[in-house]
Design a protein around this nucleic acid. Structure first.
Lengths: 233, 233
DNA sequence: ATTGATATGCGGTGAATCCCGTATAGGTTG
DNA sequence: CAACCTATACGGGATTCACCGCATATCAAT
C-alpha cells in the first residue's frame, strides 16, 4: 500500500495542489479539498481541485460560513459522511449552488486537529451511484484518515518551521513551572509540588515571562503553548 | 479489511479493554494502551493491556507526568514513533522502569484531538527485532490511525452520553476579555480598553474560569486556546 | 404575568502575584 | 584562574487578582 509522503519539510502551496490531485486520481474522486486554520500564524488556508468558477462563487457568497460539511466536521472527532448531514437551509444553500457544477452531496470530510487549536479538514467527493460509493469508502477510509493527518501536519510545518527557529530557550525548571501553572496550580501549589518556596516559583515565572517577551503570566502560558513548550491541561 | 466498530453507543470500560486486547491480538503487539483526557468532564481515563504491576508502578511514581511518549504526542499532529524520542532523563526514568516488565522503547503513539480540547492517545508496543517492527508499521499505520480516531470518538461518546455534550459556551464579552488577557493585558488595562471597570473585567474572567472548569486565569487561557476560542498573541 | 437564567455592570477585603532586591553553584570563555 | 552567564534558591513590600457580595436588563419558559 503506497502512502503518500506529505510530511516532508518545505512543502509549498503548489505541492498541496499536486497532493490533492494525486489523491483524486488515485482513489477516483471527482474532487478533493483541504481547508485548514492556523491560529499561530493567524491564517486560514485552503487547497481545492474544484473548478475555478465554483471556487469563485464559494468565496463571493462566503459559503464557507454556511457549509454544513465544515460545520459538522468542526464538531466531530470521526470522519463525517455527507449522507448523514442534516438537510437544513444551509445545506440547501450550499449544495443547490454546487449542483450547477456537478458537485453532489455525496462525500466525506475528515477533521484533524493539532495541539494548538489548529484544525484541518480533508474533503473528498464523487458523483456516482450510492452503491458504488458505499462500496468504495470502507476500503479506503483508513488510508484517507492517515493522509488527512499528514496533509495537516505538512500544512502546519510549512508555517511553523520559521517560527520554531526563533523560539527562546527556557530551562527545564521554567518549563516545568509553566506547565503546572497552565494546569491551574497557584505559585504556592507549585512550590509545594516541587519542594521549593513559592518565591522561587515566582522567580522562574518571571524569568520565563522575560524569555517569552510576555508581560503577564497568562500571556507567557499562551505563548509557551503556541511554541509547543507546554500544553493545555 | 475488518475495521473494529468502536462508535457504537454505550461502550463501557470493559469494552475498551476488550477492544485493546483485540488490537493487540490482531496486529501482534505486546501491549496496547489508550489514554484520554476530557477537559469538559475534567477526567483522565486510560485503558491498557499492560501487566497490573506495571500499571501500579506507573501510577505510584506518577510516570505519566514524565512519559516522553505522551509529552511528545501531545505536541504532535502525526503519529509519534518511539524510536525518534529524545533520550532525556525523563525517557530513562520511564523506560528503565518499563524494562523490568519487558517493555521496550519500540512503539508508536497516535494522538487524536476532539473539538473541545479533548485529546486521546493510542499507544502500541512490541518487543521484536527492529527490522520486523519497521516492516510491520507501514502496512498497518493507516488502519491504526483510523482505529485511534474511533477509540477516541467512542471514549468521548461514552462520557457525553452520560453528560450533556456541549462546548462550554462563553459570552462574547468573556471571550473578548480572555483574548486580551492572553495578549498580556492586566485587568486594569482591559478595563481601560473596553471602557469598563477592572472589577467588571474580573467578573467576566471568573465566569470564564467557571465555564472552562479552570482553577486559575492562566489555566482558563490555556484551555480557551486548546478549544480554539482564543489564540496566543 | 411571573420566574429563572444569562449577560453585563460594580465594591470591600484578603490572598496571591509581581517587582524590587538578595544569595550560591556550576559551566563557559578569554 | 578570573570574569561572566545561567540556573536555582529566598525575602520585603506594593500592586493586582480573586473571592465574597451587590445591582439592572434582556430573553425564554411556564
Amino acid at each position: 500500500m503506497d502512502l503518500i509522503d506529505l510530511g516532508a519539510a518545505g512543502a509549498k502551496p503548489a505541492d498541496f495542489d499536486e497532493i490533492l490531485d494525486r489523491i483524486r486520481q488515485k482513489f477516483g474522486f471527482d474532487h478533493a479539498a483541504y481547508a485548514g486554520s492556523n491560529l499561530i500564524a493567524g491564517t486560514i488556508h485552503a487547497y481545492v481541485t474544484y473548478p475555478e468558477q465554483w471556487k469563485q462563487l464559494y468565496l463571493d457568497e462566503q459559503l464557507h460560513l454556511y457549509d454544513p460539511t465544515l460545520a459538522t466536521a468542526a464538531r466531530s472527532i470521526a470522519p463525517v459522511h455527507w449522507a448523514r448531514l442534516e438537510k437544513t437551509q444551509n445545506f440547501d444553500r450550499v449544495f443547490r449552488n454546487a449542483a450547477d457544477f456537478g458537485i453532489v452531496p455525496q462525500g466525506l470530510t475528515i477533521p484533524v486537529r493539532g495541539p494548538y487549536g489548529d484544525v484541518g479538514m480533508l474533503s473528498v467527493t464523487r458523483n456516482c451511484k450510492t452503491d458504488e460509493w458505499n462500496g468504495l469508502i470502507p476500503t479506503i477510509l483508513s488510508e484517507l484518515q492517515s493522509i488527512a493527518v499528514h496533509v495537516h501536519d505538512g500544512a502546519m510545518r510549512s508555517h511553523t518551521l520559521t517560527r520554531t527557529l526563533h523560539a527562546p530557550h527556557l530551562s527545564t525548571r521554567e518549563i516545568e513551572i509553566l506547565q503546572w501553572t497552565a494546569a491551574g496550580k497557584s505559585q504556592q501549589d507549585v512550590g509545594d509540588i516541587l519542594g521549593i518556596s513559592h518565591r522561587t516559583v515566582e522567580v522562574h515565572l518571571r524569568s520565563g515571562r522575560h524569555k517569552l517577551y510576555a508581560l503577564t503570566t497568562p500571556q507567557a502560558v499562551a505563548r509557551a503553548i503556541a511554541m509547543g513548550m507546554i500544553y493545555p491541561l
